[in-house]
Computed example of a mutant assay.
Amino acid sequence: MKKICSVLMGMLLLSLVIPAMAADNGTDVSKLRVDGEGKVKAAPDMATIVLGVETRSTSAAEAAEENAILMNQTINALLDAGINESQMQTSRFSLTTMPQDEPRGADATQEPPTFLATNQVTVRLENTADVGRVLDAAVSAGSNSIQEVKFDLKDPTPQNDEAMTIAIKDAQRKAQVAASAAGLELGKILEITVGYGYVMEASRSYSYAMDATPIQPGEMEVTASVNLVYEIS
C-alpha cells in the first residue's frame, strides 16, 4: 500500500488514503481522492460605472455650489442618454479641505484653506455597449472624475453549471489514470465536494475621459472546482 501511495503522490499529485473501519460492513475501505477544475469564458452582459464631479474653491459655499451645478448637468445628460433614475445611485458626497503644507520661515503665513467638494454616482448598465457613450455624455456635461468601470454577468448560473460539468469530468479522468497506473479498480464515489467562483475581468480607473472613449469589456472566466473520493480495490 505504501508503494501505491508513493506512485500516486509522486507522479499524479493525487492522494490514496486508507481510513478507519467502514461503518456499514466493518471492513477496511481504501480511498482515492482527486481534484478537478473547470473553466468557462463568457462575455460580460452588464457594467457598473462610478463617476462624478470634483470642484475646488477657497470658499466652501462656492465649491459646493459649482459642484451642484455640474452634477445636475451630469445627471440630466445621463437621463438624456437613456439612463433611468433607477439605474443611478449617489455613492459618495463630501466637502473637505485640501491638505496644506506647513508654513516655513519666520514671516511665513498659513495660506487660506482650499475646499474640495465631491459628488459621485454609481450607474448600472444592462448593456456593455453603452459604456463609452455614457462616459462621453457625462464628461461633456461636466463630470471630471471617472473612478471605476466594472463588468459582470447578470446570471452566471449557466456558466457555473458548465464549468462544474467540466470539473467533474476532469476529476473522473484523473481518477481513472491514477487507478490504472497503480493497478487498481475504481469503485463507487463515496464523497463529492464542489466549489464555485468566477474571476471578473479587471476593472478600469480613469481621471478624465477623452472623446469617443474606447471601452473593451473583454471576457470573464467562470471557474468551478470539485473533489471526488472513490472507493478502490
Rank of each mutant, 00 (worst) to 15 (best):
T128H: 02
T114A: 01
A138M: 03
L78E: 13
N119Y: 06
A61K: 04
A181C: 06
Q216G: 05
S203W: 06
P217D: 05
A47L: 13
T122Q: 00
S143E: 05
S143H: 02
D211C: 04
L16E: 06
N67Q: 06
M1H: 09
P217S: 09
V50W: 04
T122S: 00
D28Q: 03
A81S: 12
A202V: 09
G197Y: 08
E231C: 11
S143V: 12
G105Y: 13
Q110W: 09
R124W: 07
E102T: 05
D28I: 03
T109A: 04
L51A: 15
G183L: 14
R33M: 15
T55Y: 11
A77K: 05
D161S: 07
I168W: 02
Y206Q: 09
A171D: 04
P112E: 14
E219W: 04
E102L: 06
S205H: 02
K169G: 15
M88K: 00
T74C: 07
T122M: 01
M220S: 06
V177K: 03
K2N: 04
K150Y: 14
I69R: 08
P113C: 10
K150S: 09
L116W: 05
I192Q: 08
G26I: 01
N144R: 02
S233I: 09
L51C: 15
I83E: 03
S180E: 10
